[in-house]
Design a protein around this nucleic acid. Sequence first.
DNA 1: GTATCTGCAAAACATTTGCAATTCT
DNA 2: AGAATTGCAAATGTTTTGCAGATAC
Lengths: 133, 133
Amino acid sequence: MNFTTHLTTNNIKPSIQRIKIFEYLYNNKIHPTVDTIYTGLVNEIPTLSKTTVYNTLKLFVDNKIATTVTIEDNEVRYDAFLEEHAHFKCDDCGGIYDVEIAIKELKYKELSDFRVDKTNIYLNGKCKKCLTK
Amino acid sequence: MNFTTHLTTNNIKPSIQRIKIFEYLYNNKIHPTVDTIYTGLVNEIPTLSKTTVYNTLKLFVDNKIATTVTIEDNEVRYDAFLEEHAHFKCDDCGGIYDVEIAIKELKYKELSDFRVDKTNIYLNGKCKKCLTK
DNA sequence: GTATCTGCAAAACATTTGCAATTCT
DNA sequence: AGAATTGCAAATGTTTTGCAGATAC
């Protein structure tokens, strides 16, 4: 994956900050928060500010190369993995995992009233590690 | 629905604040925020504080007579309608609607790694009103 | 040289916490 | 009186905004 080309293709001018933030998202599929991204990059880009991280992520979401994950109350997380998948959160350790959907058959009543553009599936429970400890 | 009895049955001592907040949630299925609930009740209970609204909703969620709706980034909403349903948010007007699920067939890979206790399905798109205007 | 992008500092919100006053039994 | 509940005020944490300086074309 060439990050510079990827940004350009999606109408985003590739600055150092934007390239590094996208690279971080792509290489760290841990659904990081703004703070996690900032902390993870500030050593490499000492002048980085959180404002830039916020601006850049908003730009990515607007241009559909990233999505928000709001499984957690009061903290927005980000994801550059765009294929459809569910998110699982362990209510014990707080870890968030991608879960591949094998069969998805969802049908709704009253659906003629809406045009659905996006479906988010969030699962909560306990992960194996927390179940066995 | 007798709200006082409902609270008592669920091990919640029924104070005026608790009864009125539950009644508001039950009668206003608009997935209100803490602020909406507070504003909707402060005329009726002039001494009401937001802290009490926060405390009371936490109590309701802990005792499973209400759930949180986090379809919106950075704002927690509450719901007293407990039957399984999806939530639809119109990205245009911001309205949030309950959507009844007619068929639900979701299967995941890697599921042996988790025990799923709760599934939230959030839909985004455009509502009829916004599609035709 | 003009547009855009970055980043500091302050402001704006949502939520939590500590504690004192109030209420209930 | 004793225990639980309420609510004010302050603190915390996240996100947004205004604007000045830096960078890119």
